[in-house]
């Protein structure tokens, strides 16, 4: 139970069933009644009460902090209390509904309605793009089995509405995944990969650009086993200005080295293996990598 201050509803709390229990006269009542009370002490008490009230009222920022620490149900309460005319609070409510437990169709449908309203209000604004992205995520992941076609359309629409927005570019990367996944013929896969590569080449968001290289790397390898193209994309991921977590970087260094070795480029393979040995001092693969380095050096 958390004490809240809800404007006209005054001080109170929500019970387990989200029912509001008021614990005192509303400020409107105080405003009407207090001037009639001559006692200065009571007036002071009233002012102090209002100050405490504003301190207790939930800010939208608190709601986002609750979401970042996985407290979705509390975040939902915070955003419900917040000013609903602010689209950021509406977005927060939609996001909190997606994370609320237990997961229900009603919550999903309500979140979907909120995101649709926000997107339709302004498709290219920051909030509109984020709402569009979440609509695609609902079709892709929240509803199981995934609605691949609908997800692809929603991702694409989000990108088309805001092609320079980081979330718009992120949406195109996800569009790439769901589209390439459904493409089976090797020739078509290659064509799609080339098209995707051209579309994402102009990305301004470094994170989205790195993710696009990741998708290219993944599909060149898994669908075509094209070693040279896979290597090129891995190296693009490794040199991205967005820092990679160690665990990811170490794996990619070995993969790049192995692909270089298989392509007959010993120098390049050694470069990647040596970078791994220098950085991954606590990795269980280091002994094996050192052996590979020794073998390659001996073969030179």
């Amino acid at each position: 139970m958390k004490w809240r201050y809800r404007g006209k509803l005054g001080f109170g709390y929500y019970n387990n069933r989200s029912r509001w229990f008021s614990l005192g006269p509303t400020p409107t009542v105080w405003i009407e009644v207090l001037p009639m009370i001559p006692l200065v002490r009571l007036r002071a008490f009233w002012i102090a009460g209002l100050c405490v009230g504003s301190a207790l009222s939930m800010k939208a920022e608190d709601g986002w902090a609750l979401i970042s620490s996985l407290q979705f149900n509390d975040a939902r309460g915070a955003f419900t209390d917040a000013d609903q005319s602010d689209p950021r609070n509406r977005l927060g409510l939609g996001v909190a509904l997606l994370g609320s437990q237990p997961k229900t169709e009603a919550n999903l449908a309500r979140a979907e309605t909120i995101f649709r309203e926000l997107r339709d209000a302004d498709t290219s604004s920051d909030i509109g793009v984020r709402a569009g992205f979440f609509l695609a995520r609902i079709a892709h992941l929240h509803r199981q089995p995934s609605r691949w076609t609908e997800a692809a359309e929603l991702y694409r629409a989000t990108y088309d509405a805001a092609p320079t927005h980081p979330i718009g570019q992120r949406a195109l990367v996800h569009w790439g995944i769901v589209t390439l996944l459904r493409t089976t013929n090797a020739e078509s896969v290659r064509e799609e990969l080339e098209r995707f590569k051209t579309q994402t080449a102009e990305f301004t968001d470094e994170g989205a650009a790195r993710d696009a290289h990741w998708v290219l790397m993944d599909f060149y390898e898994r669908k075509l086993d094209d070693k040279a193209a896979t290597l090129r994309e891995i190296e693009a991921v490794l040199t991205s200005p967005v820092p990679l977590r160690d665990v990811t970087r170490f794996g990619l260094l070995i993969q790049a080295a192995e692909l270089s070795r298989l392509l007959g480029n010993t120098e390049r393979a050694l470069g990647h293996f040596r970078a791994f040995v220098a950085q991954a001092t606590r990795d269980s693969r280091i002994f094996l990598v050192k052996e590979r380095v020794a073998e390659l050096e001996a073969s030179q």
């Binding site: 920022e61 986002w64 979401i67 970042s68 950021r88 997606l98 994370g99 992941l141």
Partner: peptide
């Protein structure tokens, strides 16, 4: 994946506000 969407958005919103 779905949780990460939510926490990534929350952290981005918090970064914009602080």
């Amino acid at each position: 994946l779905t949780r990460a969407d939510l926490t990534v958005t929350a952290n981005e919103m918090l970064a914009a506000q602080n």
